[in-house]
Design a protein around this nucleic acid. Structure first.
Length: 946
RNA sequence: GCCGGAGUGGCGGAAUGGCAGACGCGACGGAUUCAAAAUCCGUUGCCCGCAAGGGCGUGUGGGUUCAAGUCCCACCUCCGGCACCA
C-alpha cells in the first residue's frame, strides 16, 4: 500500500542530495548570481524552535527557485556559537562551553537537515571555530590599525595619521599614545554598565530600562578600562547610506532613531575667570571683542560654557544653564557656599544606576552652583545649575534651559522656581500652552521679533557664527560601542600589554603578530565570573597569560569580545570558509557580494545589523571588500505565536468573573485581578468547544454572561505552548511543516500556530501524491490515470495560470498565495480521469521548491531523471493567461444587480450594450433616466440613474 | 508620553479604487462502506423569505468618488519598539 509516507521519502532524498552534492555552490558564480542568506542561529540547548524554519523555508524556496531558473545561488548556513547560555551551563555543570556548544550545533544541524533545506553544507562555519576566530581577531586588528579621517569621511591606516609637531617633539611614546587615542579600537576608562549578577559589563544596547536585556538583572555604573569601537565616527555614513538599501522602512527608521542624528548649534556662554564669581561687564565686552576678531574656537575655552541646542532660535528664552554632574567645569563653577550641596549631588548621581536615574526621572533634581554666566546676545546674567537630567555623554554635557519651549526644562524650572520666558508664539496667533515646543513666531527676542522659526534659525546661525559665539553642530545619540566582556566564552583580544621590570603594565599595547593568530582560549578549571570585573581569563596559567616578544614581556588582554563580534562578518566567510591566507578571497568577494536577500527576525534591527554594517564599512575603507554595505535586501519574518487560547477567570470566592471586569495587576504583569475589588483572579484555560461568539466577544457556552479572553501568546516554556519541530516532522513530515509555515499567512506577519492547519497542508500533499501514484497497487506505481494524451485547452489554461501566479508570488515572497494557487490546481486535476503528463510534470517542478522531498519522489515515479531540484523552471505560455470571454458585474447606483458575459476585448459601448440587453438590468433601468454610465473595459459596468 | 504595525466569517487568511471572504482549518450534508477510518462530491458571512429575491456587512464616526477593505480626517482597541539625547 504505497501511501504518502514522508518518513520514508524525506531521509531518502536528503541522503541523495548529500551524496550527489546537489546544492554545492561554485567558487565563482555564472552570469547571474543570488546570495540568499538567513540570519544564522545561536545554537541553544533547546534545539530548533518552530520560529526558525519560517525564515529558513522562505529563503530555501527562493534558493531552489533561482537554481531552477539557472541562477548561481549562494545559500549557506552556520552558527553564532559564542554566547552566555553555554557559559552559564558551564558554570553550573563544569562542562567546558566548547563541548556543550558542539553538542548543540550537532542537534541544530541534524534538525536543519531533517527539514530538507538546500544549504551548501560544505560552507558551514561556527563563530567558535579556531579558523573563524582567527579572522575575527584579524579584523579587530584592522580596526585597531585604523583611524577615521573626518575630512575624507573614511577610515585610513594608522600609519597615515598626521602627527602634530608638538606631539612628535615629545618623542615616540607620545606619538604612540596619540595614535592609540585615534584608533577605531581604543581603550577607555569611561563608566560602564556593570552587571553583578551576570558578572560582566554590558553595552548600552544590552541594558533595557536599567536592567540587563538578558535575565533582567540590575546594572550599576562604574569606571573600568574597556575596549571601545569608534562606531560614532561612522554615524553619518551609517545614517545616510541606509537610503540605497532595500530594507523595510520601519527597520531603517529604527536604525536612524538609534543613530539619532540631530542638527543644531553649539553656543558659548561667557563665564570669565569664574571661580564662582560673576563675570563683570567690562570683561564680557572684551571677550565679545576677542571672539569677533578670532572667531569661534574649535575646542571650548576655559572662559566659556559651551552648550549644544537644536533650537538656537529660543536663545532669548534662556533662564538657566544646566550642566551634567560629570561635567569637567562643575568644579570651577561652584561657589564656596554651594560646594557642599554640589559635591553631595554629584556623589549621589555617580552612584545612581541607570535604573535609578530613569525611575526617579519623573521628579527633576538638581542644585544651583551659585555662579552665573553671561548671555551671549544680550549680556544678561544666567544662573548655572547642575542636574542629572543633562547627560554628560551627549552634546557638550551642558544645555541652555528654555523652560517655555522644552518640556524637560519646563519641569525643571517649575520644580525649582526658575523663570519661564516665552519667546515663540504659535503661528496661528493663538495663546500657547507652555511648554510650547512647536515652531512659531519669535517674540521677546530683540532684533529677531516677528521671525518665523525657520528664518530665525538661519539668521541666528550666521549671526552667532560671525560674532564668534557659536557654530552649526551635528550630534548623534549613538555612542561608541563598548566591545569588551568579562566573560570566558568569547574571542580573546589579540592584544598584548607591555610589562615593566616589576611586572606592571606600562600602558603600551601591541597587537599579537598576524602569524600567531588565532589567540586561543586558555584551559580553565572554573568558568565562574568573579565578584569584581576581573575577567576569568586573568585566572589562566602563566603559559597562556604571559608572552615574550622581541625581548619584552607582555601580559595578554584578558577581556573577551562580545557575542556580536562573530556575526559582524560571517556573510563574508561563507564565501570562502576554508581560506587560510585571507578572511575571504578578493575575487570571490567581489563576485558574490553583496547579500541579495537577507531574512531574519526584527529583533536584530539595531544591534547586529548596525554593527555588521559598521565593520563592513571599515573593511571597505581599508580596501578589503568591494561594497560599502553587506546586505542589499532585508526581510523580517514575523513571529509565530502559540495556538489560540481561550482564558476564563475564576473569582477567589468561587464562580466566574467576566473578562471585562478584570484587569492586569499594575505591577505584576502576569497577574489578573478583579477590576473592582482588586482580588486576584485565577486564569483557567477553556477548551474551544465550551465557548461561543456573541457579537464582539467570546462567552462561555453554559454561562453566556461571562466573557472570556481569546488570543494567542508568545511561545514560552512557562506557558507550555512551545511547538517542537521534531514532533511535527515525525507526525506530518518535513514537507508539511515547511508548507504549513509558508501557508499560515504573509511572511512578515505575526501569526498564531495551529497544528490542525498542518494537517490541512498534509492532506494537500496527499492529494498531490494520489495525482501521480496508484495508492491501491502493492508496489510504488504510477497511477493509471496518468497518460500521454496532449493536454486540452482548459487544462493548459489552469496550468499556466498556476505557473504564472507561483512564479510571481515567489518573486514577491508571497508564498501563502502561491500555495493556495497550487491547491486550486490540484483540486482541478483530482477529478480528471485522464491526467496528461504535460500538465503533471510542470506542476511537480513548481511544487519542488516548496515540498522538495515529495516533488523528487513524484518526479521519480513519473520516470524522470533526478533531481527535479535542478530541473528547468517551467515556461509560462502567455496565450493561456487570457480569456476569450469574461463575466463582468453590472451595477446600478453602484450596487451589484447582475452579470453579463462579454468578449474579453469588448469596448465600453459593446459592454453597455450587453448590459442593457440583460433582461434584469433592462427592468431596473425601465422608466429611469441614465445620468451617467461608467464602463471599465474587461472589468465592470455601472449605471447612475435618477 | 513618542514612534511603528495591525484590526475582514467560528479560526488562519485572500482581494492593481471595480463581483468582499480566494485557499486552508472547523462545521454541516451526501456518495462509498456490513460498519468505521480514509477518500470523493457538495453546502457554509449575518438577517428576512417556501422561493424568486431583498436587506445588512471589512474596529467606530465622518469625508472624497459613479464605485472604498483599499484614498483622506478624527477616534477606539491590540501588538511591537523607544523612553530625560537638549
Amino acid at each position: 500500500m504505497p501511501r504518502y509516507a514522508p518518513s520514508r521519502i524525506e531521509p531518502k532524498w536528503q541522503e541523495w542530495w548529500e551524496a550527489n552534492h546537489t546544492f554545492v555552490s561554485p567558487r565563482l558564480p555564472g552570469k547571474k548570481k543570488r546570495y540568499i542568506l538567513d540570519m544564522f542561529p545561536y545554537p541553544s540547548g533547546d534545539g530548533l524552535h518552530v520560529g526558525h524554519p519560517e525564515g529558513y523555508t522562505a529563503t530555501d524556496i527562493v534558493s531552489r527557485f533561482e537554481r531552477m531558473r539557472g541562477t548561481s545561488v549562494m545559500h549557506p548556513m552556520g552558527f553564532d556559537a559564542f554566547g552566555l547560555p553555554a557559559e552559564e551551563h558551564a558554570i553550573r555543570t563544569g562542562t567546558p562551553p566548547a563541548e556543550s556548544t558542539k553538542r548543540n550545533i550537532d542537534t541544530f544541524r541534524r534538525q536543519l537537515k531533517m527539514l530538507g533545506f538546500s544549504y551548501d553544507w560544505s560552507r558551514e562555519v561556527a563563530t567558535t571555530d579556531p579558523g573563524y576566530v582567527r579572522w575575527t581577531q584579524w579584523i579587530f586588528l584592522v580596526l585597531f590599525d585604523t583611524w577615521f579621517d573626518t575630512t575624507e569621511n573614511r577610515g585610513r591606516p594608522i600609519s597615515e595619521l598626521p602627527i602634530p609637531a608638538d606631539v612628535a617633539a615629545e618623542g615616540d611614546r607620545a606619538v604612540a599614545r596619540y595614535r592609540d587615542e585615534h584608533r577605531l579600537a581604543f581603550q577607555s576608562e569611561a563608566p560602564v554598565n556593570w552587571c553583578p549578577a551576570l558578572g560582566t559589563v554590558l553595552a548600552n544596547e544590552e541594558v533595557v530600562g536599567g536592567v540587563s536585556e538578558r535575565g533582567g538583572h540590575p546594572v550599576v555604573r562604574m569606571p573600568l578600562r574597556q575596549w571601545m569601537l569608534r562606531i560614532t565616527a561612522y554615524a553619518d555614513r551609517l545614517d545616510r547610506e541606509l537610503d540605497g538599501l532595500a530594507w523595510p522602512e520601519s527597520i531603517k527608521k529604527l536604525q536612524r532613531d538609534w543613530i539619532g542624528r540631530s542638527t543644531g548649534a553649539e553656543v558659548d556662554f561667557f563665564i570669565g575667570e569664574c571661580h564662582g564669581d560673576t563675570p563683570a561687564d567690562e570683561s564680557f565686552a572684551a571677550w565679545q571683542q576677542t571672539r569677533k576678531a578670532d572667531g569661534f574656537p574649535g575646542k571650548p575655552t576655559d572662559d566659556a560654557l559651551r552648550v549644544y541646542t537644536t533650537r538656537p532660535d529660543t536663545l532669548y528664552g534662556v533662564t538657566a544653564m544646566v550642566v551634567a554632574p560629570e561635567h569637567p567645569a562643575v568644579e570651577r563653577l561652584t561657589r564656596p557656599e554651594a560646594r557642599g550641596a554640589v559635591e553631595a549631588y554629584r556623589e549621589a548621581a555617580s552612584r545612581k544606576s541607570d535604573l535609578d536615574r530613569t525611575d526617579l526621572a519623573r521628579e527633576k533634581s538638581g542644585v544651583f552652583t551659585g555662579s552665573f554666566c553671561r548671555h551671549p546676545l544680550d549680556g544678561r546674567l544666567v544662573p548655572i545649575w547642575v542636574a542629572d537630567y543633562v547627560l554628560a555623554s551627549y552634546g557638550t554635557g551642558a544645555i541652555m534651559s528654555v523652560p517655555a519651549h522644552d518640556s524637560r526644562d519646563h519641569e525643571f524650572a517649575v520644580a525649582f522656581g526658575l523663570g519661564i520666558v516665552p519667546v515663540i508664539s504659535p503661528a496661528d496667533g493663538g495663546e500657547a500652552e507652555l511648554p510650547f515646543t512647536a515652531h512659531g513666531i519669535a517674540v521677546n527676542s530683540g532684533p529677531y521679533d516677528g521671525l518665523a522659526t525657520a528664518a530665525f534659525l538661519e539668521r541666528v546661525g550666521s549671526d552667532l557664527h560671525s560674532a564668534g559665539l557659536g557654530q552649526p553642530a551635528v550630534n548623534y545619540k549613538l555612542r561608541d560601542w563598548l566591545f569588551s566582556r568579562q566573560r570566558f566564552w568569547g574571542e580573546p583580544f589579540p592584544i598584548l600589554h607591555e610589562l615593566d621590570a616589576d611586572g606592571r603594565e606600562t600602558g603600551v599595547v601591541r597587537p599579537v603578530p598576524e602569524s600567531e593568530l588565532p589567540v586561543p582560549l586558555p584551559v580553565l578549571s572554573d568558568y565562574k565570573p568573579g565578584n569584581t570585573p576581573d575577567p576569568p581569563l586573568s585566572r589562566a596559567n602563566d603559559d597562556w597569560l604571559y608572552v615574550e616578544l622581541d625581548g619584552v614581556r607582555y601580559r595578554r588582554e584578558t577581556n573577551t569580545m562580545p557575542q556580536w563580534a562573530g556575526s559582524c562578518w560571517y556573510e563574508l566567510r561563507f564565501l570562502d570558509p576554508l581560506n587560510s591566507e585571507r578572511f575571504v578571497d578578493a575575487e570571490v568577494e567581489r563576485a558574490w557580494m553583496p547579500v541579495d536577500l537577507y531574512v531574519g527576525g526584527a529583533e536584530h534591527a539595531v544591534l547586529h545589523l548596525l554593527y555588521a554594517r559598521f565593520w563592513h564599512k571599515v573593511l571597505h575603507d581599508r580596501g578589503f571588500v568591494s561594497w560599502p554595505e553587506p546586505f542589499g535586501q532585508l526581510v523580517n519574518q514575523g513571529m509565530i505565536l502559540g495556538e489560540m487560547e481561550f482564558t476564563g477567570y475564576r473569582h477567589p470566592q468561587g464562580g466566574w468573573l467576566s473578562a471585562e471586569q478584570t484587569r492586569v495587576h499594575p505591577t505584576q504583569p502576569g497577574v489578573t485581578i478583579d477590576r473592582e475589588t482588586g482580588d486576584e483572579a485565577t486564569s483557567v484555560r477553556i477548551p474551544a468547544e465550551q465557548v461561543e461568539k456573541q457579537s464582539e466577544h467570546f462567552v462561555l457556552r453554559d454561562a453566556p454572561k461571562i466573557r472570556v479572553d481569546s488570543r494567542a501568546y508568545k511561545m514560552s516554556k512557562s506557558r507550555g505552548n512551545v511547538v517542537n519541530p521534531d514532533k511535527i516532522v515525525q507526525e506530518f513530515g518535513a514537507d508539511s511543516l515547511r508548507l504549513y509555515e509558508m501557508f499560515m499567512g504573509p511572511l512578515e506577519a505575526t501569526k498564531p500556530w495551529s497544528t490542525a492547519g498542518v494537517g490541512g497542508v498534509r492532506s494537500f500533499l496527499e492529494r498531490c501524491w494520489r495525482l501521480v501514484v496508484d495508492e491501491r497497487a502493492d508496489d510504488l506505481a504510477l497511477s493509471s490515470a496518468v497518460c500521454d494524451d496532449p493536454a486540452d485547452e482548459p487544462q493548459l489554461r489552469e496550468l499556466h495560470r498556476m505557473l504564472e501566479k507561483v512564479t510571481s508570488d515567489i518573486e514577491t515572497l508571497s508564498f501563502n498565495t502561491a500555495i493556495a494557487k497550487m491547491m486550486e490546481f490540484v483540486n482541478f486535476c483530482t477529478p480528471l480521469e485522464r491526467r496528461p503528463r504535460a500538465i503533471l510534470e510542470p506542476f511537480v517542478k513548481a511544487l519542488a521548491p516548496f515540498a522538495p522531498h515529495l516533488a523528487e519522489e513524484l518526479w521519480q515515479v513519473l520516470g524522470l531523471p533526478a533531481p527535479v531540484s535542478l530541473a528547468d523552471w517551467p515556461a509560462i505560455d502567455e496565450r493561456y493567461l487570457r480569456d476569450d470571454t469574461v463575466e463582468i458585474p453590472v451595477q446600478v447606483q453602484g450596487k451589484l444587480r447582475g452579470r453579463v458575459t462579454i468578449d474579453a476585448d469588448a469596448d465600453a459601448d459593446a459592454m453597455i450594450a450587453a448590459a442593457t440587453a440583460d433582461p434584469r438590468i433592462a427592468e431596473l433601468l425601465e422608466g429611469k433616466t441614465i445620468v451617467k454610465t461608467i464602463a471599465v473595459p474587461g472589468r465592470m459596468v455601472n449605471f447612475v440613474v435618477r
